[in-house]
């Protein structure tokens, strides 16, 4: 297991270097260059241009710039936002909990519904239930998030008036946010109705964001389960006199989870991409919305830092998934 962990962690390093290269080259891929982009339509005097180039370090050789950039990263310096002049890392850390809260709820929704739906569809193969689950999940998978989110708002917020349209909590509430997770902060504040308000704000964005992972997980669970149910050890488990429930939920599920966990890891990337749209539509103050605004304002240090950190998260989560794989699958644990 230790060798397996070491191997997986070792593989992260080249990936990470690749990401820094990509994020670094971003600033050089802008049409014209970053300074021209900053100057906007009014133009800029040559002196000011020189000054800004020097300030951004763009007048030095590329290699020096890259090593400087990586050196700064290693010291936790992700640069400053051109717009707010705050540190990119600080801004990121302030907004990150909101995205995590949204993504976790979306993922929880996807797992809580997707796993049982996929299992049921596999067990009741070729039944009406199977076709319904697969049909609905295919629809969910094909639905563009922005459109789906707007439909949800139209129905639940506008027509029925059940849920708020945007934000994380009703503006009437005002309490300190030590964790940045609204549900936890609301609970800690002890204010009446705060948790309920936070929950009502969270529910639509979580559905919008969780739909694609839900569909993917349901379909993957179904196909993994169908494969596993044909295995000899399932027959052995039944021959022991185990109940159908134990056979499916213990013997089959444990094996079916192996591919499903991989897919869950990959969905984290989808969640972060989806968060950009979802947060923009629901005015959810997370890193997705932050990145979109940074792109609009041509705030390149923010875009650069945001990409770097989002990519890091995807890498770290997939590393965690690979390690979890070893826990679930004894063959990996012992054979590496």
């Amino acid at each position: 297991m230790l060798a397996y962990v070491a191997k997986r962690v070792g593989m992260v390093i080249p990936t990470f270097i690749g990401i820094t290269l990509l994020a670094f080259s971003l600033i050089h891929m802008i049409p014209g260059n970053a300074v021209e982009a900053l100057s906007g339509e009014r133009g800029m005097s040559p002196e000011r241009y020189q000054q800004l180039s020097h300030q951004l370090g763009l007048d030095r050789p590329l290699r020096t710039q890259y090593f400087d950039y990586v050196g700064h990263l290693l010291h936790g310096d992700f640069g400053r936002s051109i717009n707010t002049h705050d540190g990119v890392l600080q801004e990121f850390l302030t907004l990150f909990p909101a995205t995590v809260e949204l993504a976790l709820c979306a993922l929880a929704l996807a797992l809580l519904l997707g796993l049982p739906a996929g299992m049921l569809a596999a067990v009741k193969r070729n039944s009406v239930l199977d076709y319904s689950v697969m049909g609905v999940s295919l629809t969910g998978y094909s639905m563009p998030i922005f459109w789906w989110a707007l439909l949800l708002i139209q129905l639940f917020s506008v027509t029925l008036g059940w849920t708020p349209v945007s934000g994380r909590i009703d503006i009437a509430f005002d309490f300190p946010a030590p964790t940045g997770f609204m549900l936890i902060d609301a609970w800690m504040s002890g204010e009446d109705g705060a948790v309920a308000s936070a929950l009502w704000h969270l529910i639509l964005p979580a559905i919008a964001l969780g739909t694609i992972p839900l569909a993917v997980i349901a379909r993957m669970t179904r196909s993994a389960m169908l494969e596993v149910l044909r295995e000899d050890y399932v027959r052995t488990a039944r021959a022991k006199g185990l109940s159908w429930f134990s056979v499916v939920c213990v013997h089959a599920l444990r094996n079916a989870l192996i591919p499903v966990i991989t897919v869950i890891g990959l969905q984290v990337g989808t969640l972060l991409t989806g968060a950009i749209l979802t947060e923009t539509i629901f005015s959810w103050p997370g890193i997705g919305k932050w990145l979109v605004e940074a792109i609009h304002r041509r705030d390149y240090p923010v875009v650069q830092g945001g990409i770097l950190m989002s990519a890091t998260i995807v890498i770290v989560v997939n590393l965690a998934v690979d390690l979890l794989y070893g826990v679930v699958n004894p063959r990996i644990r012992h054979n590496s």
Partner: peptide, 16 residues
Amino acid sequence: VAMIFQDPMSSLNPCF
């Protein structure tokens, strides 16, 4: 009544 099968390697659950 109990039963044993032809292929012992695949008849045991690999995860347990």
